[in-house]
Amino acid sequence: MTKYIIKRLLGMIPTILIIITLSFFIVRIAPGGPFDGERVLTEAVRRNIEARYHFDEPLVKQYARYMFDVLRGDLGPSYKYKDHDVNYLIGNSLPNSIVLGSMAMAVALVFGISLGITAAVKQNTILDYFPMCLAALGLSVPLFVVAPLLQQIFSMQLHWFPTTGWFMTTGGGGWKTAVLPTIALSFAYYADIARLTRSSMLETLRSDYIRTAKAKGMKNSTIIFKHAMKGAMLPVVSYLGPAFAGILTGSIVVEQVFTIPGLGKFFVQSSFNRDYTLIVGVVIVYSIILVIMNFIVDIVYAQLDPRITYK
């Protein structure tokens, strides 16, 4: 097992390097530079700026320099936010995004799994239909509709929750600020997880080894939680990798609607501004999170399924 983990960890390194390289070059070959939008620069000023950001060097050298900096943990200066470097900007906003994302994921998992199992066990009853209708809704209503609607209903009309703000910022309001963004972000993933849990639970309950367990005289609850649970959770676990990726992008919308100072806002703005270092920095950070999440998912999967061999 340890060997397997180490091997998978080492396997992550080339992936991350390739991701850095790819995003660096995609951004660099793009037409238009970060300073295009501003007033026309004199030749001297332009040279000066280019020298400061090493634009005057050949691309390969820029790449090597950037790679070296990144490996030291320095993502470089931001071109647009001149007072701060990328590390500072990301470091300030990333925790907000991560907290939001993890809360949404946790909510989606708790509700998705529990309601999915109930639906499977109580098939064709109200306990099946209601959560599944909700899930069908969650699949079809885009996040950018859910978020404003929740805001409209629960903050503007009912005044239950504040419209904007974020509890982690100073003076950002209490825990209530976290409720609506979390629900909005988790909705679609609740839908997927509940449907997945239900169908895989149903399938597991039909399997031969569950019949064996019944023939042994096991109680229904024991059968579900001890015998069926592990097998039924496998598809859910492998879904979690892509789900994390989705939540990362989804949080862009939620952050925008609820004005949460997260990474998503920087990402969209920096791509409009062609703020190269910031874009690449955000992509690298997102990718690393994603790669780590996929790694964790793999390990959990291997833990759950004894048939996986650690080669």
Partner: peptide, 16 residues
């Protein structure tokens, strides 16, 4: 698969 692919799309749209 390891890339946050919606972000790549965003970059492409913003830049190209």
């Amino acid at each position: 698969y390891g890339l946050p692919y919606m972000l790549l799309v965003i970059i492409c749209m913003a830049i190209f």
